[in-house]
Simulated scan of single mutants.
Amino acid sequence: MVQPTIDPAARKADYERLRDDLLEIRDKIADIEASADSPDGLVSATVVGRGELSELYLDPRIYRTHDSKALAGSIVDTIKDAVARSQEQLFEITRQYLPPAAKLEDTDVHTGPFLHQLDRKIKGEF
């Protein structure tokens, strides 16, 4: 079977276009911000980007109870909810580049290493 000849200039243009798309995705990911509140309203968490905690608010009423285990669980659950919301935003940002049947739970986009590989290909390193 004869393999078709691929124009190096066209291939480089494809890589550059993909790199530009990935840079745009990375910028959009940096703009992600998602918040969640605990069911009792005593805990609020905000995450940015891929789910990094940026804010945690604890209502002073949390001190009315001495159940530290329940408080810790509420904090963790609230942060998980905020992270899940940020992941939904990430999925929407990357949806156009995924197969039509892709699901949120199967999606994890790490653009840094991929961009490095594209840069090497554009420069002709491999």
Rank of each mutant, 00 (worst) to 15 (best):
residue 1 M to P: 10
residue 2 V to N: 11
residue 4 P to C: 02
residue 8 P to K: 12
residue 8 P to M: 09
residue 9 A to K: 15
residue 10 A to D: 12
residue 11 R to Y: 15
residue 15 Y to H: 14
residue 18 L to M: 10
residue 20 D to S: 12
residue 21 D to C: 06
residue 23 L to H: 10
residue 24 E to Q: 14
residue 26 R to Y: 09
residue 26 R to K: 14
residue 26 R to G: 07
residue 26 R to A: 12
residue 33 E to H: 12
residue 33 E to G: 05
residue 34 A to P: 08
residue 34 A to M: 13
residue 35 S to W: 11
residue 35 S to E: 15
residue 35 S to R: 14
residue 36 A to I: 15
residue 38 S to M: 12
residue 39 P to V: 10
residue 42 L to V: 07
residue 43 V to Y: 10
residue 44 S to D: 13
residue 44 S to W: 14
residue 45 A to S: 11
residue 45 A to R: 14
residue 51 G to N: 11
residue 53 L to V: 13
residue 53 L to K: 01
residue 54 S to A: 08
residue 55 E to F: 05
residue 58 L to D: 04
residue 59 D to Y: 03
residue 59 D to I: 11
residue 60 P to W: 13
residue 61 R to K: 09
residue 61 R to P: 02
residue 62 I to R: 01
residue 63 Y to N: 02
residue 64 R to Q: 10
residue 64 R to F: 05
residue 67 D to F: 02
residue 68 S to C: 03
residue 69 K to D: 07
residue 70 A to D: 03
residue 70 A to E: 09
residue 71 L to Q: 00
residue 71 L to V: 00
residue 72 A to F: 00
residue 73 G to E: 11
residue 74 S to V: 00
residue 76 V to L: 06
residue 77 D to K: 08
residue 78 T to R: 01
residue 78 T to I: 05
residue 79 I to N: 00
residue 79 I to L: 04
residue 81 D to T: 10
residue 84 A to L: 05
residue 86 S to G: 03
residue 86 S to Y: 06
residue 88 E to C: 02
residue 90 L to P: 01
residue 91 F to P: 02
residue 92 E to G: 00
residue 93 I to Y: 03
residue 93 I to V: 07
residue 94 T to F: 04
residue 95 R to L: 08
residue 95 R to H: 04
residue 96 Q to N: 07
residue 96 Q to V: 03
residue 96 Q to H: 06
residue 97 Y to Q: 04
residue 97 Y to C: 03
residue 98 L to V: 04
residue 104 L to I: 03
residue 105 E to G: 03
residue 105 E to F: 07
residue 106 D to R: 11
residue 109 V to S: 09
residue 111 T to A: 15
residue 111 T to P: 11
residue 111 T to H: 02
residue 112 G to C: 06
residue 113 P to K: 15
residue 113 P to V: 12
residue 113 P to L: 13
residue 115 L to R: 04
residue 115 L to C: 09
residue 116 H to G: 04
residue 117 Q to S: 09
residue 117 Q to I: 12
residue 117 Q to V: 15
residue 119 D to I: 08
residue 120 R to C: 07
residue 120 R to H: 11
residue 121 K to V: 06
residue 122 I to E: 07
residue 123 K to R: 13
residue 123 K to S: 07
residue 125 E to P: 01
residue 126 F to E: 11
residue 126 F to S: 04
